[in-house]
Structure formats: C-alpha cells, structure tokens
Design a binder for these strands. Structure first.
Length: 741
DNA sequence: GGTTTGAAACTTTTT
DNA sequence: GTTTCAAACC
C-alpha cells in the first residue's frame, strides 16, 4: 500500500496536483502539514524531482523543524538538500550570499526590536525631534508598515509632499535607513524587503534562484504580507509551481502587515490556479468543532467552508464566569490538578491560552502555589535578557566593526569609567567626520574635546583587537569563554551574589551551551552564523510538545499547536475582544480579526475545552469590570455546560448598576458593560492577618521565613520577614499574600 | 561618573 | 502592578 492511500481524496488532490499554482484552503486540524510533507515526498519519489529544487517556507522555526523531521522520516536520504525554512532565514541565506550587490557587507548584523528602538532614539536626538510628542515607537511602526508594503524612503517622501507629519516621518525613515546601512545592519523587515529588491533588480540573482527552485510551497499563507507575497511571486515566476496552504479564518496578524487579500485573491493573481478545500477535521470532537463553527460564522468576508468531523460529539464545553480573575486562575489550577490526579491527562496535555501576556502572571502564581509544572511561552525572550544582549553585543562588535549600536552597548559594560559625556563626544566626532563609532574610538587621540577619558578608551579598543585575534584562530565557544574571562563579566556577578545575579550566571551558562550545540550541529560554524541563528529564533521555537508541563501562552502563539485539554481564560468583552478593537474606527474589521483569534483558540482543543472569564480583574493596577465575551455568546448554547451566562446574585455594594439579564446584556451598549471603577475592590481587610510576629510564613517568590515585625501602616500592615534564603524583606500584607505554615 | 529615587507610561497580538 | 527613564544627589 502506498503512503498516499492513507490520505482522503482532497488531501490526495493536494499532493498529486504538483504543476502550476495551487491554493489549498485548509481548515484547522485538516491535516495540512501531512499534505505538504506527502507532497514533497511525492515530488521526489514519484516525479523524480531533485530535493535541491524544492523549497518550503514557514513562519516559525518550529514549524520548519517539524516539517523537515517528517520529510526526513518519509524519504530519508537527500532530505537535507530541500530548503525548509522560515521567510526570514530564507532571506538571510540569500542575502549572506548577495547583500554586497545592494551595497552591504555580507556579514551584516540583524537588529531586533530593542536595537531598532535604541537606533530610533538616537536618530530623534540627531534630528532634534521631541520624543515626548512624537514617540519612537510610532515612527518605527510607520516605517515597518512601509517596509511591509515595499515602500522605499524615497517613495514615502514623494507621497508625503504637502503633509507636515508625513514629511517628518519620511525624513526619519530616510535617516533610519541610512544609519542601518552605515552600521551594516538590517532589521526584520529589511530582510524581506532587501531580498525582494535584490531579486527584482538583479537579473542574475533572480535567474539563479528561479533556476534553483522548481517547486515552492508556502505554509500559513494567510499571514503573508505584501513584501512576502512579492518575494514568493518573484521566486516562483516562470514555472509557477507554487503551492500555498492557508486558512483565511486563521488570519490573525493584520497588525503586523499580513494582507488577507493575498489568500482571498489568490485566484485573481493566478487565474489558472487549482483550488482545493480541506474541510474534514481530524483534531477535535464534534462539540468543539461546532462551537468553533458557530463563532466564525459571524464573520462576513470569508471563503465559504464548514469544518466537519467523523469524531463523536465528545464532552460539552465547560463555561464559567468567576467573580475575580483570581478565582478564575484558581479554578484552572485546581481543574488541571484534578484531571492529572484522576489520570485523565498529563500536565503536558494541558494548555492555558489568553489574549494578553499580562494575564500570565496570575495564572503563574496559582500554578506555582499548586505545585503544577508549567512553562510560559512569550513575554521576555531569552535573547532579550540584559546579560545575554551584553555578551552578544561583544560578539557582534568582533564580527561587524560597523555595528555602532553594539559598541555603544558594551563600551562601559562592565564599568570602565567611560560615561555618557565621553561617548557623546566620540559619537559627535564620528558623525562630523562620517565615520563609524569604533573607527572614531580607534583614533581617540584625534578627538579634540576628549580629555582624560581617552586613556580609558584605548584599553577597550585593544581588548576588541585581542578578541578578534581569538576569533580568527578559535571557535565561537572559545571566543565567548574568552570574552567572559577577559571582561570579568561573570566574576562581577558572582561577587554580587544576589539571587538575580545567580539567575544571570545561569543564563550565561545556557548561552554557552547553546553556542556549543550550534558548533556541533553545523558543519561550518561561524560567528555570523551563530548570531544569525540567535537573531531569528522565536520563543515558541523552544516548545517541546513531549515535555511534561502545562503550557501558558497567548492565542497568537498557539496557532499551529494542539492540546487534548485547553483552557481559554479571560473571555471578557473589553479584554477579548480587546477594548482597542471595540472602540476602533474600523471596529467591524478589528472585531472580525479578534473573532478569528477566538476561532484559532477553540480549534486548538482536541478533547476538552474550558472557557472562563472574570467579572473583576486588575488591569494596569486598576480594577476593571467586564461582561462575558460576545464570542462566548456566539457558541450554540446547547454545546455549553457549567454555569451559563445567567447573572449570579451579586454584591450590591460593589455594583450600583442593576445586574444585566441575559437578554438585556445583548442589547446593552458596550460602554455600559465595560466600565472602570477606580479604587474599587482594593480595600484591605485589615483584621484578616492570620499570622503574627514570630510565626513561620511562606512567600511565593522568597520561600519560607519568620515574621520579625508587623507595623500598622494605616491602610495596610507592613510586615518584615526574615527569609531563610532570600534575607530580610519588608512588604505590605495585602500584596505579599503570605501564608502561615 | 555613578547611584538613587520618583514619576510616568504601559498592554493587544510578534517574525 | 511593573518597568523605564530622567532628575537630583553623591
């Protein structure tokens, strides 16, 4: 029996239709990855296509890795010659080869959003723009959108004529781009845009890649932006053996420039396209699927389709609205613990999904208290940590002397007595003479305004020279170790001795082992190669599905994943859909995007789905009151169990408005449902302390300790605790949430 | 030049 | 509730 017989007829069609443009509309859980991997196998085994001629593009490294692994299993030898990678790494690979044709050095640096922000800050200073009025972030977002649409600084300036604000943006954009180039750096958007430029204007390069890639496949096509569309179009032009897979109902990255019309209008771009719909779902139970269908049916402007399954109805969806976010988190933690205890699920089968990263804190607290192993995806990226960025900046300076930003970052880390004044003198001198910062530092004795600081700068320059000599003779890991030793970075942390410093050292150790892994896994490890790999990883890439912990993440991060037991937390109007989307000018569109996000969330669940919300929740230190998310009300009622959204008896002192009934809620304008009340619910129960001086207590972060002193601070008690490991801390009783042991 | 302190902004989502 | 950033102080 051939491997293709296990596929359903539509999936087979997707595999066997190899020539010409193909659009596969693949609903959630319809086996699109199976189709893509089988398609690759079919091309190689049945059509005799060389692996070398096949390209598959995804959005995350994780997706690319999984696809590569599955293809490896199917065809074995030769699979490594296929290009399976993300948009960004594909582009870097092309640019490392040909960036010199655009006037860059092929060893360019990749700037992350932190780097972008520092650069922008500097530019605003140079252009004398008051960042109190015009935010750096606003400029960056304008520039990013322009790049997504392939609008160059020059074109932007032309379209800005007569518009004062836009003219200023154009100037910033031009300067920003000039500085990136001077620093021999590209931001994320540049990676795509510059590759498109290269393919568009350099016939030789275009021909080279068009000759190379005979068959191109793109995953998650609904999330491509204009630049990515153009990139794919250029690579595929000629043969046009282009197969795109996507689901318009799962398009959730509009804010990042994703153009939903890329998928909706695919048949217009390619009139001879074959369109295949995968509507059979192999993931979820009937109830979960019907809930998802019920919600998404409220969107207009989508391709008609309806997912179905052969699976049983399964359990009903559990829904409950809690009084506070605290109780909600408590319920989720207890429910997970209960199900694991009963042997129903392992920790690794459970995922908690939410709209915003900020929601993770409460959940984390409860899980920690219940002793449930968990992992939070997103939030602070490993490579975003200070100590990691510092060390990476050393590597960057060694690799690319033009990277002013990296020089700026490390010149006084660890402290060398080179302060802001000296650095701005050096930066001004470099700016005046059209040289890079490091060049200016190399000839610091020529900087007239520089006084005694010069004596401190010379050893720094020498240090970098020394690192370069090491880099020339030894591997990346040896270089990094040398940098750590020579700068005394870890030593300084060790002397500090605090828990935070210890955590930093651990992170640095992890960085070292990542370098070693990189060296082992690559045939030709290089410093640039390592830095590139580091720049392009996303947090989700590190997720291991077989691990035994509960996963907490945003709905966005959850796309493409599946779990037997899923919790959708914070299903409240004003949080999800977000207040921003409800009040936006184009509210209808924004709400539809949120609804797609909800659809993504529901369809992550295989067997069991719990939907929860809270009436009361702290947002930015302010207590807010929310009604139940409108999306919950779009789920057919017969699919739900648990408490429905009938209002519960409520505390009259807290709510002066009459409780909305089920029918009146639908009619009530939103503003009435989502109101804020300052200082409500934050009153402290002053007599509620169940511990006293001398008692043993437990704190979430600091562990156990002894209460030394309790002071009546008026509105709250101020408690001093001597912790066994963390030392003496003073804290307010209402915040510390100490527990008597 | 470095450290401390207080105010202000922040949160929608990220390759 | 947390983080970031500037001013004031050492």
């Amino acid at each position: 029996m051939s491997i293709y017989e296990t596929l359903n007829p539509e999936q087979q069609k997707g595999v066997f239709t190899t020539e010409g443009p193909v659009l596969i509309l693949a609903g959630a859980g319809s086996g699109k990855t199976r189709v893509l991997t089988h398609r690759v196998a079919y091309l190689i085994q049945q059509k005799g296509v060389a692996p070398y001629n096949i390209m598959a593009i995804t959005f995350t490294n994780k997706a690319a890795g999984e696809m590569r692994e599955r293809i490896d299993d199917m065809i074995g030898f030769g699979a490594e010659r296929i290009w399976v990678s993300t948009f960004h790494s594909s582009c870097v690979r092309i640019l490392r080869q040909f960036a010199d044709r655009l006037g860059y050095d092929n060893r360019f640096t990749i700037y992350d959003s932190d780097d972008q922000k520092s650069l922008m800050k500097d530019i605003c200073k140079r252009l004398e723009i008051d960042t109190k009025i015009h935010k750096e972030k606003a400029f960056l977002s304008v520039i990013s959108s322009a790049k997504d649409e392939l609008i160059s600084p020059e074109e932007f300036a032309q379209s800005a004529v007569g518009d004062f604000d836009k003219t200023r943006q154009a100037e910033v954009y031009r300067e920003y781009q000039a500085r990136l180039k001077a620093n021999n750096a590209m931001d994320f958007d540049d990676l795509i845009m510059k590759t498109v430029e290269l393919l568009k204007y350099d016939t030789e390069v275009r021909n080279y890649y068009q000759e190379r890639f005979h068959y191109i496949m793109v995953d998650e096509y609904q999330d491509t932006n204009t630049a990515q569309f153009e990139l794919v179009r250029l690579l595929a032009s000629g043969r046009e053996n282009l197969c795109v897979v996507g689901d318009d109902d799962q398009s959730i990255y509009k804010f990042r420039g994703a153009n939903i019309y890329n998928i909706l209008n695919f048949e217009k771009h390619y009139p001879n396209a074959t369109v295949i719909k995968l509507e059979q779902n192999y993931r979820s139970t009937g109830n979960i699927l019907n809930a998802a269908n019920g919600v998404i049916a409220n969107n207009v402007g989508r391709k008609a389709k309806r997912l179905w399954t052969q699976a049983d109805e399964g359990e009903k969806i559990y829904f409950e609205q809690f009084e506070s976010a605290y109780e909600e988190a408590d319920y989720i933690a207890k429910d997970i613990a209960k199900r694991v205890r009963k042997g129903e699920y392992a920790y690794g089968d459970c995922a908690v999904l939410y709209r915003t990263n900020a929601q993770s804190r409460l959940l984390e607290e409860r899980l920690l208290l219940s002793g449930i192993p968990y992992k939070i995806v997103g939030g602070v990226n490993f490579y975003g940590r200070k100590e990691i960025k510092d060390l990476l900046s050393y590597l960057k300076v060694v690799d690319n002397a033009q990277d002013d930003l990296a020089v700026q970052r490390i010149i006084n880390v660890p402290k060398r007595g080179i302060g802001a004044t000296s650095m701005s003198k050096a930066a001004d001198y470099a700016y005046m003479n059209g040289m890079q910062l490091f060049e200016a530092l190399e000839q610091v004795e020529n900087i007239p305004t520089m006084g005694r600081a010069a004596a401190k700068i010379i050893p720094f320059v020498e240090l970098i020279y020394q690192f370069r000599r090491v880099a020339a003779n030894e591997g990346v890991s040896a270089l990094l170790q040398h940098i750590i030793d020579a700068t005394g970075y870890v030593e300084e942390l060790r002397v500090e001795g605090t828990d935070e410093a210890k955590a930093r050292i651990e992170n640095i150790d992890e960085l070292l082992s990542k370098v070693v892994t990189y060296e082992q896994e690559n045939e030709e490890p290089t410093l640039s190669g390592f830095l590139e790999e580091v720049a392009l990883v996303a947090d989700i890439d590190s997720l291991d599905e077989n691990a035994s912990y509960v996963v907490l993440m945003t709905l966005h991060s959850a796309k493409g994943l599946e779990f037997p037991n899923v919790y959708l937390a914070g299903m409240e109007d004003g949080l999800f859909p977000s207040y921003m989307s409800i009040t936006a000018d184009n509210s209808d569109e924004e709400i539809e995007e949120e609804r797609r996000l909800c659809y993504v969330g529901i369809t992550r669940a295989k067997e069991h789905l719990s939907i929860t919300g809270a009436r009361m929740r702290m947002v930015r230190g302010e207590t807010q009151y929310h009604g139940i998310s409108r999306f919950v009300k779009e789920i057919p009622e017969e699919l739900l169990q648990g408490s429905t959204w009938e209002p519960k008896p409520r505390d009259e002192r807290m709510f002066s408005n009459p409780a909305p009934t089920k029918t009146s809620m639908k009619a009530t304008p939103l503003a009435a449902q989502t109101y804020q009340a300052k200082n409500f619910g934050t009153k402290i129960q002053k007599n509620s302390l169940d511990y006293g001086e001398g008692d043993r207590v437990k704190h979430i972060k600091f562990g156990e300790g002894t209460v030394v002193q309790i002071n009546d601070g008026g509105r709250d008690f101020e408690v001093t605790v001597e912790f066994d490991t963390a030392g003496r801390k003073k804290m307010f009783a209402s915040f510390a949430k100490l527990q008597k042991v």
